[in-house]
Amino acid sequence: MAGMSAAVAHPPATAADPLPALRLALAGGPRAPRRALLQAGPAARPDPELAARLDAVPAPLLERCLAWLEQPGHHFLPWNDPRYPALLRECADAPLALFVAGDPDLLWRPALALVGSRAASAGGRDNARAFAHAFCRAGLVVASGMAAGIDGAAHEAALECGGGTVAVLGTGPDVAYPRRHAGLLERIAAHGAVASEHPPGTPPRAAHFPGRNRIIAGLALGTVVVEAALRSGALITARLAATYGREVFALPGSIHHPQARGCHRLIRDGAQLAETPEDVLAGIAALAGHLARQLAPPPAARPGPATTPAQPRGDHDKLWQALGHDPIPMDILAERTGLTPATLSSMLLAMELDGRIVVEHGRYARRSSGDGPGA
């Protein structure tokens, strides 16, 4: 694990050799030169300042990351990896790499961020659960930060109904915060995905949580704030979502409830009022249609962060033929079409928003009046 000298090239990581990209991710410092080095490939050499930081990456830290990656279900996605989520990559401040425990395909699927106060009321937690259930029934992934209160309720609800959920952490991917969420962390890693830009073993630090919030906002088509005080991390997530061109929604509350004031401020500042999950689903329709092409993962052989082309017409026809009037789960559609769940998710979302299919409890069926993929 000796340090890499300035004269040694730093190629982008591959499945067989994550070490060069790991060094870049762990070296710290300005993101732009490290991203450029990832993109440049084996012929590139770091500038002296970056080379010194690469040499200073502690060997025990590298060893800990490599040992974590050897475990089943653990993944490292550098920015130039074709598996890196497309919507997040569009953000100028996207992390250089992600450590993911669980199913990395979930990071590609259409998602809504559901966030709010750690000191949530019972009604707020009930609202988070109801909205999460509705989003999962619509085939969307629920993304949140696994904090106490609203975040935890949203993840729990998504797991209960068998939907997809992504937890983005301000710690390492193996460190639960708060500690009482250790069991929740294990369940999300087993049935969803846990993502972090911080290496395994990283403890909670206050400075990490705004960065976590930007990842949540960047992964999602929109951010829904259930409850929030005037000074709240959820408001940071909402503001970041707006800067990324994503939709922002806020649930109203009592004028006497301190945890409603942040939501009311968001609404005054232009966030969409969300009284029902249907308000949110209608609100993301235009954006989802525009971004659906970005949600289909590129072929594994495609190098670098190239723009993903529109789905071939034949794939849409193949999916339409695989659908029936009886609800069908995603895994059966994948078997019938040979398409990945991530690709299917983006296509199914577009079909649902066009009114050609219905989604119930994660199962998909043609509408009785559906006219086919070209309608």
Rank of each mutant, 00 (worst) to 15 (best):
G102R: 07
G124N: 04
D81E: 10
L87I: 09
A154L: 06
A182H: 13
E70P: 00
L77R: 06
R64H: 09
P104K: 13
G73K: 02
L96F: 10
S117A: 15
A97C: 07
A86M: 13
P82C: 03
R137F: 01
C91W: 14
P178E: 01
L184C: 06
V115F: 05
R109T: 14
C65E: 05
P173K: 01
Q71R: 14
A120K: 11
A97L: 10
L107I: 08
L106T: 02
A113E: 02
L169A: 10
E156T: 11
R137I: 00
T171F: 07
A119R: 12
L98I: 12
H75S: 04
L77P: 02
T165V: 13
H155E: 13
L87K: 06
D126L: 14
N80G: 09
V141T: 15
R109P: 00
S121C: 07
F131R: 12
Y177R: 01
L185V: 03
R179A: 14
R129S: 14
G162I: 04
R83H: 11
F135V: 02
A94H: 06
G152I: 01
D105Y: 04
A111G: 11
L98D: 05
W68E: 00
P72V: 07
P95W: 10
L66I: 07
L96A: 03
